[in-house]
Design a protein around this nucleic acid. Structure first.
Lengths: 295, 295
DNA sequence: ACAATCAATTAATTTTATTCATAGATACGT
DNA sequence: ACGTATCTATGAATAAAATTAATTGATTGT
């Protein structure tokens, strides 16, 4: 009754803006689409488009169908991809989702030995999710989630895979460069460089500045780690990054790490997956590799 | 390529155990199914079943397809149901999921005025979820979740709708009936009656007994609230229930509430939904009604 | 007012799905 | 061990469905 082809047509008409254009993309005639959808409308008993002059506008039912199409078609595509991998004797594709910038840096270290070890598994990394990483796991958009926020719920399995300290990075010539640690107040006269995410998702805000009621002099947003460090090195501001990351760049750049507060800020990265996938060998292997890296 | 019909056949063959039986259920001939699936196997390049004598056994690819079928077919069915509701001018079905027993009692109070107010909306209540309530929300199995554990994640929206106190219920003739409150130690000689859920999901355990390292003399499991209260009334044990629930039965049954600890145990019930559904009027109305009930 | 563009429609045609009839294989009962 | 019942697979025939070609009517922009 409601077939994959119907969903495909709805989605393509929405993308292309007209039946004719969609027909071109789908390698069919405009007439074919018109017939197919008319039949569906009759079967459902409701119109999908309002015919306004020579253009189409989705009805409420049509809009709903479009949402369904956008949700289910990618899953069908994925299923086919997966099956073709079975056919070729390949293992599959490991779709990894990430929810934080340090996650990415950590991931880089793991993926490379993983690819070497599992030559018949492809790795695909995604960063944007309509409903967040958890939603992407539940929605079968990804198979593995790298995140600082684990979620112990039925159907999911999380495991800490990396501990690190979040530190302040300053130029070697900065006044704070020699300090054993820095207090929130000392940042009120600094320019803070961060990745472009909401401030309450930044550790330096929610675990350091906000509890003390302090704001930096200015807040600048930088996309990439390397540029951020170069800005810090040239004295344009300070940033908060994982200690291990700072240390790796310490040789080539004039930057030094400084502890945030007396205790420092301890962070963890978690790896999460669906319980249903618990016995996929190449997924288990990723967890295993992550555990090894930890020590 | 991979069509709904293929998924339907895979699922039905799995349910019925044979092509022939599945063909009967699907109102087709055995030959039709055989042809259809053979074509799919050729297109995919991989077998779906191992032909063992006169019976079929799923290959790895087939098992995967079955999983896909069990995941996607219900969503397609749901979409059709929804569209037929659009066609009839009905609003739709509100699928509510529940994750705790007090939730059910609370829900009963809300659903009845809701049904009166929204005569063109059906309500369906589910209690079992393969991947928990959160998974059911993300997986479009339900539209609304009633739970004591909210989850503030992108894509979801939670809201507290009910505050109550969890109290101990004892018979009117029980030694504790007159006490202002009860300490954990006093339960070590009692028989505790609870709903059949894991103990660490029971508030009286994880918030009262376990912190004090106390166990009750015995622990009996009862399915329904009424029987539980009758058991309590007849002096067969004590139970932990919401205060308002106990008070509602206080007239007809010989039971009294007693505070758990000096502070009492404060509880909240939350209502959760997908953000994407935020502007469905009959869903908004449910939240609204819940808010009103609160005061 | 005219050309261009788009969706709907009808009838013809092609493609696809389904059935019928039958063969081959295997389990089960006697 | 033999026959029977019960599976699935297969080829040819048939029914059903999707698709096209050709055309119409409507609308937009120039």
């Amino acid at each position: 009754m409601l077939e994959r082809s119907h969903l495909t047509i709805i989605r393509e008409v929405d993308r292309q803006g007209s039946l004719t254009a969609a027909a071109g993309v789908l390698c069919l005639t405009q007439s074919a689409l018109s017939h197919t959808m008319k039949k569906l409308e009759q079967a459902l008993g409701t119109d999908i488009w309002l015919r306004e002059g020579r253009s189409l506008r989705l009805t409420q039912a049509g809009q709903y169908l479009l949402d369904v199409a956008n949700r289910l078609l990618p899953q069908l595509d994925r299923a086919e991809e997966r099956l073709s991998q079975y056919a070729q004797g390949q293992r599959g594709t490991l779709r990894i989702g990430m929810e934080c910038h340090p996650c990415y840096q950590w991931l880089l270290k793991i993926v490379s030995p993983y690819l070497a070890q599992w030559s018949d598994v492809d790795v695909d990394v995604k960063q944007k999710f309509q409903f967040g990483g958890i939603g992407a796991l539940f929605g079968f958009e990804i198979d593995l989630l790298v995140t600082p926020d684990p979620l112990y719920k039925p159907g999911l399995r999380f495991e800490p895979v990396f501990d690190y300290e979040q530190v302040l990075v300053v130029s070697r010539h900065h006044a704070l460069a020699m300090a054993t640690h820095v207090e929130p107040e000392q940042l009120s006269s600094e320019i803070l460089l961060t990745y472009p995410v909401e401030t309450d998702r930044l550790d330096i805000y929610n675990q350091f500045l906000q509890p003390a009621g302090i704001s930096p002099k200015r807040h600048k947003v930088i996309e990439t780690t390397e540029i951020m460090l170069q800005m810090v090195a040239s004295g344009r501001g300070v940033a908060a990054l994982p200690r291990w990351l700072v240390e790796r760049y310490a040789n080539e750049m004039e930057v030094v790490p400084v502890r945030l507060g007396q205790q420092g800020i301890a962070k963890q990265i978690f790896l999460g997956a669906r319980e249903a996938d618990a016995n996929i060998d190449y997924l288990k292997a990723f967890f295993e590799l992550a555990r090894q890296q930890m020590s």
